[in-house]
Design a protein around this nucleic acid. Structure first.
Lengths: 132, 132
DNA sequence: CCGTATCCGCATGGATACTG
DNA sequence: CAGTATCCATGCGGATACGG
């Protein structure tokens, strides 16, 4: 069965393959909260509830979850101080530096080209409106 | 209500804000299928069903949907030829070039640092195992 | 203050069937 | 060949409540 398309694995260098190195990084960058958290930590360590307030629209659950996965990937480190009540600081690891660099480039590209995208969108939607 | 945290909009420069230019670009890059489609179109125009076969794991629905949104954003262009049956070619626009550049950088960074991430992950999981 | 556990609505996306 | 339309499972993520 499927004789016409038994291509072994996907073809292109980066085609869908859960094990592709790029996939993992792409998934991190694609993670809305992970990006926001990393950008918020960019200028230094921040405590849990500060993080929450600064990001604003994030739920406790998502923040906790995001921090744990970032910590697991060695992108964020956690430091707890036995004050009372307990104080916990999160900060970026050196490894995260490269990601921040990429995020900065995305931001830069976005700021200079989002106008084009919006224009294309308006043009497209306008065409649609006429067609309809 | 919510008197303690009626911060107007989110604070930090890039905190969650659906209108932030970077947000749109990040969402595109975060879109698994959009990335795969763009990478598959990187070397030249490809027809609908070829695209489907090359990517392999994508459904018709997702491919169609992804192509439409990429077209809307001016990142992909569509050309139909009145052959019978009809032939349709998709190709990247010049605007997409910048995104491809960024994707290449992500790939490059990923290939040189994913080892670190995986190591951190193993270390972390190992620690967990001991703790458990 | 710093989380974890639970419930649950809702959007994402696959499978399938049908049209030009 | 190139799509569109429909149905439906599942998983993401918010709200809430509770524990360390």
């Amino acid at each position: 069965m499927l004789s016409t398309l038994d291509l072994p694995p996907p073809r292109i260098g980066d085609a869908y393959n859960p094990d592709c190195p790029t996939r993992h990084v792409l998934d991190r960058i694609g993670d809305k909260w992970a990006v926001l958290v990393m950008l918020t930590l960019k200028d230094g360590p921040v405590r849990f509830n500060d993080l929450r307030r600064r990001i604003g629209a994030i739920s406790q659950k998502m923040l906790s979850q995001t921090l744990k996965s970032l910590e697991r990937d060695g992108l964020v480190s956690r430091a707890a101080f036995p004050t009372v009540p307990v104080t916990v600081e999160y900060r970026l690891t050196p490894l995260a530096g490269g990601l921040i660099g990429i995020l900065d480039q995305i931001t830069h590209w976005a700021e200079s080209h989002v106008g084009d995208i919006m224009a294309a969108r308006r043009a497209h939607d306008g065409t649609d409106a006429l067609a309809a």
